[in-house]
């Protein structure tokens, strides 16, 4: 008779191993697109704000609880996933008037310096590339928390939320400025799975 090791026992051993494993120096996390969100807010006619989102967010980040200043973020957003709940406006946003999504398929952010200001809050400076233009920007980033879902086959998860305000004209996207605001507020919420 062939012996089959019960899967419950395997899970228990795995959980036990993780529970006693020493904390790693810097853990790398792959962004889970299903639980990552990028939204933006922009003024419309100076009288209201329109919100939009990008439906395809990916990349990696690190978490280092020992050396918080060593964290890094590398986020990639697909330009043609822009969604403002209006097909005509989305087409216009993807066109050469704005993102030129076929020519510049991604928006990217790569951190270059991190300053921790305590309480799991960071000022993350990095290179933001939109529409083929790269600018150094500083985002306010909160470390949200971690979740050990190993026993549920969800892996170890952690997340950040970043807030950033940019001027779209700095990235060569200045169409309709005045009617539609120049200043864009971005909020990016990231959940990653430890690799």
């Amino acid at each position: 008779m062939k012996f089959r090791f019960p899967s419950v026992m395997l899970s228990a051993i795995a959980v036990g191993l993780f529970a006693v494993a020493p904390a790693r120096a810097a853990d790398s996390y792959k962004i889970d697109p299903v639980h990552a969100t990028a939204i933006f807010r922009i003024s419309h006619l100076g009288s209201s704000f329109v919100y939009g989102r990008f439906d395809d967010v990916g990349g990696t980040f690190t978490v280092d609880e020992q050396k918080p200043d060593d964290v890094s973020l590398d986020v990639t957003i697909k330009a043609d996933s822009v969604d403002t709940n209006n097909a005509a406006r989305d087409k216009h946003l993807k066109s050469a008037d704005f993102f030129s999504a076929n020519e510049f398929p991604t928006l990217t952010f790569k951190s270059t310096a991190v300053k921790s200001d305590g309480d799991k809050k960071y000022d993350v400076t990095g290179d933001l590339t939109i529409h083929g233009v790269t600018q150094s920007v500083t985002a306010k980033v909160d470390f949200v928390g971690t979740f050990d879902g190993t026993s549920m086959k969800m892996g170890v998860r952690a997340g950040y939320e970043a807030h950033l305000t940019i001027k779209r004209s700095d990235f060569g996207m200045d169409k309709l400025v005045g009617l539609v605001g120049d200043e864009v507020q971005l909020t990016v919420s990231l959940e990653g799975v430890r690799q």
């Binding site: 419309h44 209201s48 403002t84 209006n86 097909a87 005509a88 406006r89 087409k91 216009h92 309709l176 009617l179 539609v180």
Partner: peptide, 12 residues
Amino acid sequence: DATMGSDPYMSL
């Protein structure tokens, strides 16, 4: 395409 009006920038 402009489900909310003839011009998305003026729809509201």
